[in-house]
Amino acid sequence: MRRLHAAVAALLLVGVTAGSAAADARAQRPPQAAAAAVQVPAGVTAGAAVFDRQTGTFTEQLNTSARFRSASVVKLLLALDFLWNRGPDYTVPAADRALLEKMLRGSDDDAADHYWSTYGGSAIINRMVSRLGLSDTAPPPTEYAGYWGYTALSARDTVTIYRYLLDSAPGPVRDFVMDNLRKSTRCASDHFDQHFGIAGAFEKPWAVKQGWSGSSYPEGTCGAGGAAATASSAPAPGPAAAASVDLTRPALHSTGTVGAGDRYVVAVLTLHPVGTSYGKAYTDIGRLTRSLNVPGAARPTGWWYGTWSDHVNVRPNPSTANARITQLPAGVEVLIGCQKRGEEVEVPPYTNDWWAYLPQYGGWISNIYVSSPDNRIPDVKDC
Rank of each mutant, 00 (worst) to 15 (best):
A9T: 04
A10Y: 09
L11W: 08
R29M: 09
Q32F: 05
Q32R: 14
Q32L: 14
A36Q: 06
V38N: 15
A48L: 13
F51A: 05
T55D: 13
F58L: 08
S65P: 08
F68M: 14
F68P: 05
L77G: 03
F82V: 11
R97L: 13
G120M: 04
N126I: 00
N126P: 07
V129F: 01
Y150T: 01
L166N: 10
D167P: 09
L181V: 06
K183P: 04
C187V: 14
C187N: 07
D190A: 09
E203S: 10
K209Q: 15
W212P: 00
W212S: 12
G214H: 02
S215C: 05
Y217D: 03
P218S: 14
E219A: 15
G220Y: 08
G238D: 09
A241P: 06
A242T: 09
A242D: 04
A243D: 13
A251W: 02
L252C: 08
G256K: 00
G261T: 08
G261K: 07
G275S: 04
Y278V: 00
G286Q: 02
G302I: 06
N313G: 08
A323C: 13
L328D: 04
V332L: 06
Y357P: 12
L358G: 11
Q360V: 08
P373K: 07
D374K: 06
K381L: 06
